[in-house]
Structures are given as structure tokens and as C-alpha cells.
Design a protein around this nucleic acid. Structure first.
Lengths: 233, 233
DNA sequence: GCTCCCCCTTGATCCAAATCAATTAGGACT
DNA sequence: AGTCCTAATTGATTTGGATCAAGGGGGAGC
């Protein structure tokens, strides 16, 4: 699969003509990082943003005491660090680490600036993309400040669920990565995560290993106080 | 004071030539809201973003149980809701309310889109502005997830402090709005706020009413685990 | 199949902050 | 100055989640 083929699919580049995509691909570089490897650190110069082909990447900040605050976890087809490229200080504000072996494409800043200067539609795409990332952060902030651990768990499950054929409102979810990572992402400890899953049972959640069944997504969504405007499932 | 005079000063419009600013001012409308009045609600169509001339505005989301999550509080000279204008859904993701009587300028979406299309420098300014807002949200997320109430208090004070003449490292802060609002902004209850101020005393903080003295900002910053890269004071 | 290691679960205890409850302090108004 | 009313403090109690501690389970490698 070519670089051009990959990047043309992401939302950011919708409505950009194929020729431009080809040209852009020539400026990009593909890289692979082993599990646990650091992609960049907070404070590094932001020369590029990234599109994930395969694997998962964790963005986080770390306190003096060594405590991690996970800002986001990105997977295949998603892009990240767009905003850092346009920030005045031109530095990544977070650390990025490969959760497992990850393959991604780096799109250099210089190319983006150039493209924005010559194509206003592209500039608008870029703005829309960053705006929606910001919306995500706002939701995250709301979740962490007003929801309990089980509610955040439920909201997470609803984000990752896929509709099951047949029955109405019944879903199944395959947890995309380790439970311990999900817990830091939700700002809870692994022990609390386990217990939170238990507390969701009365709300129609069954779990066995990494696969989870939601018997009634509307009931769950109600418990989690989720508006479906936020999470088109 | 004219509209043009106000908006030319904000970071977003730096490097834009005065004639353009004048033209833009003609498209803007100035409005005043009384204390407690709603500027817009989450889900409203985002037709404009705003620059505050006078007063304070609270952005927040609200849960089913009625609990508020304050995302940000903006004051004179600051702009807000830029990102909403560029989001695909074109809706405000938060509620906005006047904390006290507020005067502001609304800059219509249509004008922005037009301006971005014809001036790429403006597009880059817009991107930088939204990127730095995003950086703020990331910091906020980190603070709420890894810091204690007194640490968040201290960080807040450092953001608002002004250097006092004479002594080194000594600062004074005038609290910009009600303590109860500061507490919701820091995601703590008013009772905890009071007690947190007390807990900061051993770290060189004195307080009387709305004015607070920081005897050693470096000591405080150390306690709060703040890097001065984040808050150029 | 067996072993080892890491992840996960379950239980007991602890703690920071929320909640509940009661005063006290400050402003705005007459 | 005195009256209200709201904001702020202070104390007592509760609680959600963290921490400490001890098993269990599943997958990779042999």
C-alpha cells in the first residue's frame, strides 16, 4: 500500500485532488517504531505531524513525580499532533510513545505551510480537523471532571462498539489495547477499572477477557449521561 | 474606543494590515450582556466567535444531573469560540454565560471564511491561535488528572500574578472573579478551595479577602510542579 | 504439556475531597 | 448605621477511588 493511498483516506485530505496527494506523498516519510519506543518528547521541535497506518500511539504528559496523564490514544487511520505544528512555539506539548509496534507516516511542517499558502480549501480542512480535536479535549475534560469511573468506562465502551447484526441495541466491543492502558486513558487505576466493569453489570454489560457485550446501548448511554450527538456510534 | 481599535490588539490579528482591520470592524457587531445572561448554548449554530472588551465570560458544559464542568473563563482582550466556527458540525460544543456584565465584539463566520480564502497569513494566525488554545486544554487535562487541589490552586495563582516592584520572587494577585467560580474552574468545591488556600500557607502564601501575596513564586511553582515554559508569568 | 512472566482480578485499608451542617463576613440597598 | 442576602469559612462526617497486599489466569516460549 502506497503512502498516497493511505493519506488520501484521512478526513484531513478530503476534497484535495489526487495529484496533490501524490506530490505530498513524495515529501512524506514512513517510519516504524517498536513497542514502547518514544516517537517524540514534550518540548521537541514540532517538524511534522503523523498519520497512523498500523498500531497504537499514546500521547501523554508526565509530572515531576512520574505520574502519567494520558491525553489520547490514537489508532490506524487517525492523525495526531497537527496542532503542534502550527503553534507559535513550534514544540510538541506532549510525549508520544508506541503502545505496540506502530507504522506511521510523517508529514513535514514545511509542506503543510506551503500547501496552506496556496490552497485555502486545505487551510479550512486543517482548521476543521484541529477544531474537532479540540472538541474531543473538551469532552474529555468534562468526563474527567463530572463523571464517575464506571460512567467513563461506559462512555469508552460506547465509543469503541460496533453494531451487532440482528438484535436491536445489542453491541459487542473488542478492547483495542491493554486494560491497564485504557485505565490510564480514563484516569483511573487498573484495580478501579476491574471493579468499574463489575459495576456496569446491572446496566447490561457482560465481559469475558477482552471482549465485552453491551445488551442495551441506550440504557448504558443513559447511565453514562452521553448524548449521541457527541458519539455517533 | 472603536471596534477596529480593540480587535487590532488581539494576537489573532497581528500582522494583518490596518485597512483590513477597518473593513473587518464594519462587519462586526458589539453587544452587551448583563450578569448571568447566556451568550450561547451548547448545540447552537456557531455563526461567530467573540472578543471580550470588558467583563468575564464562562464556558462550561453541563451534565444531566446539572453539574457544571467549567472549561475556561475568559477576560478582557481574550477571544473565544474560534474553533467552533470551523468545526464541521458548526455548533458550539459548550455553553457561554456572562459572569458579570460583559461587552464583546462578535466576528461573523462568513467574514472569517472569506478572509482565510484570500489571505493565507490570516489562516496561519488562526491556526496558531487555535493550536495554543488546544495546548491550554491539554495542560488543563493534565492538571485535573494528576494534581491535588492545593497544587491546582497554586498554579492558578501563578497564572494571574503580576510582578511586584522591588523584592525578588514576591508577587501579589488580585483574584479576578468570585472564589466560587475559581473553584468550579479548578474542579473543586468552594469548601475545598478555602482549605486549599490554608494549605498553601506553609508554601509562602498569604491571603486576605480577594488579594493574595506570594512570598516566593519559585517555591510555589516547585510545589505545584509547574514548568515556567508553560506559564511565562 | 509445562513454566515463567506479566496482566488482571479480588480483598482490606487508607486518604483527599465531597457532602452535610452551621456560622461568619461582605456588600448592596434603604 | 442597620437590614438582607449571598459568598466564604470552619467543623464533622461520608465516600469514591487510591493504595497496599495477595492470589489467579492466560499467552509466549521452551
Amino acid at each position: 500500500m502506497t503512502i498516497a493511498h493511505t493519506i488520501q483516506k484521512i478526513a484531513l485530505f478530503q476534497g484535495i485532488d489526487p495529484k496533490t496527494i501524490e506530490k505530498m506523498a513524495a515529501h512524506c516519510h514512513q517510519k516504524t517504531f517498536a513497542k514502547g519506543k518514544e516517537l517524540f518528547a514534550a518540548g521537541d521541535q514540532a517538524d511534522a505531524f503523523f498519520v497512523i497506518i498500523e498500531g497504537w500511539v499514546k500521547l501523554f504528559r508526565i509530572s515531576k513525580e512520574g505520574e502519567e496523564a494520558v491525553i489520547h490514544v490514537f489508532g490506524p487511520g487517525e492523525s495526531f499532533a497537527e496542532a503542534a505544528v502550527f503553534n507559535e512555539r513550534r514544540m510538541y506539548p506532549v510525549n508520544a510513545q508506541a503502545v505496540e509496534k506502530v507504522t506511521l507516516i510523517g508529514i513535514p511542517r514545511s509542506f503543510l505551510i506551503h500547501k496552506i499558502e496556496e490552497d485555502s480549501q486545505f487551510a479550512l480542512n486543517m482548521l476543521a480537523s484541529i477544531a474537532s480535536r479540540q472538541h474531543y479535549l473538551v469532552q474529555q475534560l468534562e468526563q474527567i471532571s463530572t463523571r464517575t469511573a464506571p460512567q467513563r468506562m461506559g462512555a469508552f465502551l460506547l465509543q469503541f462498539c460496533k453494531k451487532q447484526t440482528g438484535k436491536d441495541g445489542i453491541m459487542s466491543v473488542e478492547l483495542p489495547y491493554d486494560k491497564s492502558l485504557i485505565s490510564t486513558r480514563l484516569n483511573i487505576k487498573p484495580e478501579t477499572f476491574s471493579r468499574a466493569l463489575g459495576k456496569l453489570e446491572p446496566h447490561g454489560i457482560e465481559h469475558k477477557g477482552h471482549s465485552i457485550i453491551i445488551n442495551d446501548m441506550y440504557k448504558l448511554a443513559d447511565f453514562c449521561d452521553i448524548s449521541f450527538k457527541d458519539t455517533p456510534c
